[in-house]
Design a protein around this nucleic acid. Structure first.
Lengths: 145, 145
DNA sequence: CCTTGACCTAAAGTTAGGTTTAGGTTGTAC
DNA sequence: GTACAACCTAAACCTAACTTTAGGTCAAGG
């Protein structure tokens, strides 16, 4: 059993955020002793799920739905599974987008590195959009498609 | 030369957002004819940079700094390069985090798949945290570290 | 001519996801 | 027995990044 302060330290989350999550219904089985919250492994796993769903792009109101399903027991397993499947696919798309963003950043690093060496952007711009050095061209194409 | 409406279609961004970006100073060389904005390739590349920096985790006020540097010419090349290098590193960390999130989602998909087959979570919970099937254990460990 | 659609501005409004405030209780170390 | 930290609530507040509103210009088509 952990206090709210211990959980705060454990996840590096403000105490106020944890209380906010509680108010949103994210700890359906949270026990209190004399008004004070007693966090157990179930709540720790709940926070992991919250962070996971949040990072996957879900909004708080949709995460709430997940915890409603938790209170409904085994009949909601298919709904919960479908939610995770959907988040997995959304995250995979997001990661592909970030690959393109990463290529753009790599290209810009090369771009300014060369601009610093040349003192201007003229030569680079004369190479755009398809006369770049081979390796850079690949990165450029990946980021501008 | 493109109208704001064409740019809106091109990037699938509301016209209001493009005006907002303009007001923030993100098109330092934007030309107007009779008050009407005329977008060129420079502004198109600017929008790509905005989206790139934004997706990399930068806030609008910091993106503003980039465009201030652009107006200062070649003396700010090192600053601009440093910004892209920093975003590249931040994005790489972010992508690592998303790998862990992805592992968590994969684990949860397996978890609920099994819960549906078993009708309850008892057997799964008896396997936690280190007696899971080999492949699943790997995913679980990756997501809970 | 007049209406329709695309453009313009300034300023107010919106939303999510917390955070802060004000006021109060609890428990334990000195 | 009192001071101190850690806990509690309800409600007001905050911030970022837009979006909407209200009011206006302008060019082309019928």
């Amino acid at each position: 059993m952990y206090s709210i302060g211990e959980i705060s330290t454990m996840f590096n989350l403000p105490v106020s955020t944890i209380r906010y999550y509680d108010k949103e219904g994210f700890f359906p089985n949270l026990v209190r002793k004399g008004g004070i919250r007693q966090f157990s492994d179930a709540e720790i796993e709940a926070i992991r799920v919250i962070e996971c769903l949040k990072e996957s792009g879900l909004e708080i109101k949709d995460i709430k739905q997940f915890f409603i399903w938790v209170t409904q027991g085994s009949k909601s397993y298919p709904d919960r599974k479908a939610m995770f499947e959907a988040r997995k696919e959304a995250l995979e798309k997001e990661m592909e987008k970030l690959e393109r963003i990463h290529a753009m950043l790599e290209f810009k690093c090369w771009y300014y590195d060369k601009a610093i060496k040349d003192g201007n952007e003229d030569e680079i711009n004369s190479m755009l959009p398809d006369k770049l050095p081979k390796e850079i061209q690949k990165i450029y194409d990946a980021s501008h498609k």
